[in-house]
Design a protein around this nucleic acid. Structure first.
Lengths: 237, 237
DNA sequence: TCCGCCTCTTGATCTAGATCAAGGAGATCC
DNA sequence: GGATCTCCTTGATCTAGATCAAGAGGCGGA
């Protein structure tokens, strides 16, 4: 597997050594299949703010996120933005319903993806029920997250939304890196607002209020839970 | 295939004659496979307001909706409700992420489902890549709808939400029954409110305003589009 | 025919969160 | 070391939609 960047410099990377080999969809594959997959995918690096793919663009590839964080969002014609999710290493992207992407994905910080041409990957998975079942499970998990988020957007208060986001993010990072009370927030306040259906001011004020109540401590690019139980209660209601 | 209701009365129903045979996931199956499936599923009738399955309940079955409309919703502990979707004939339900259902489903009007025991259906699909791919496509479509709905809940005004709902509902019914300017609304105003993240009063007022502007005409249990283009414009923005 | 029970509509008022506005605190660049 | 950005916070004010309240209209049951 060849890396596309830094330009001219080639890395030999094999699926068998992949960082997300156990957490991604590829966990469903045996060593022979992984070798076959080595020939289909290539690593692509993106710098912060770069666009991996854009809404309405022809969906010519699938992607496994290897490293970094992606912001997934939909735009309305007048510029209103809704972030539909943040992707983390191990996430699988590109299951478009039509020929075109339903949302845009761009990098929050440096990112590495494993890119597969749609046609060859489709052919690769076509007769692999174990892999199809795993992709199914991933889709079901995504759908479940989406439905939880609908409840948040439709029926929760600003404070509940923010607490819910922080707890949810902490738990996702915990699954990747192990539990911790301090969690990195690589996304901006505006990103959080556009994820939670709020304005940046409301997010900022809610952060401040949670800090004043000693539920969290705010630091640049991260927060620490001081009273995790209190935050969990707000998130659960 | 035996029908569970009316009690004591048995219908012989074969998958090959099924009303949703072409639109549901079963469209992926050949005649032999349909015969095999005949032995796994059974038709179950529900009357209006009956619960097909409930959130947190053990997910022991999959369901194909054959006839009628289901309301799919999540409840918060304090009773706030978010409807995550309405199911129509051809829809496939039961892809729970865990052992338990993530949402409740109940009947809006009389309903017929085709029910499959989870274990035997899982076994049935396990080695059928064509069926797995179709289930995948269904899941991707659901996910896409969910993401569209997140935009609606997070970033749209009440008027846009209502117009968007009416147009979306019209288009789904059109796919089932052919296009029409009059569309049945079997769900209550409260259901619509809980789907759109609004209150019943706001939904009612918005309907009234759309009628006053001669965009729609309101009739009991249904509406007619008078200026479909105007409604589509509101829905699209 | 009347009663009780719904669902839906409409009006008055309130408020959570949006909008408008003004800095402050770091970065990055010459 | 100052200029310019970008991101974040905070304050003042506004408003879309929520909440509170009161019917209206339908429908089934006896």
């Amino acid at each position: 597997m060849k890396s596309s960047l830094p330009a001219g410099q080639l890395e030999e990377l094999l699926c068998i050594d992949c960082a997300v080999r156990r957490s991604g969809i590829c966990a469903a594959l045996d060593p022979d299949e992984l070798q076959e997959l080595d020939r289909l995918g290539r690593h692509v690096h993106f710098q912060s703010r770069a666009t991996v793919f854009a809404q309405e663009e022809l969906a010519t590839s699938f992607y496994n996120l290897i490293e970094g964080v992606l912001r997934l969002y939909k735009l309305l014609p007048d510029g209103r933005r809704q972030i539909v999710g943040f992707a983390l290493p191990g996430d699988f992207l590109g299951m478009a319903v039509s020929a075109r992407h339903g949302f845009s994905a761009d990098a929050i910080g440096p990112v590495v993806v494993c890119q597969f041409a749609r046609a060859s990957f489709s052919q690769f998975i076509a007769d692999k029920p174990h892999l199809l079942r795993r992709i199914n499970a991933f889709a079901a998990r995504e759908l479940n997250l989406a439905q939880e988020h609908m409840v948040l957007l439709g029926r929760r208060t600003a404070e509940e939304r923010v607490a819910s986001f922080l707890i949810g993010w902490r738990d996702r990072l915990a699954r990747l890196k192990g539990p911790a009370q301090t969690v990195a927030l690589p996304m901006s306040r505006q990103d959080i607002a556009d994820f939670l259906g709020l304005t940046i001011e409301t997010v900022s004020r809610t952060f401040t209020r949670l800090e004043r109540d000693e539920v969290i401590e705010i630091m640049p690019g991260r927060i620490t839970f001081l009273k995790a139980a209190r935050a969990e209660a707000l998130a659960a209601v």
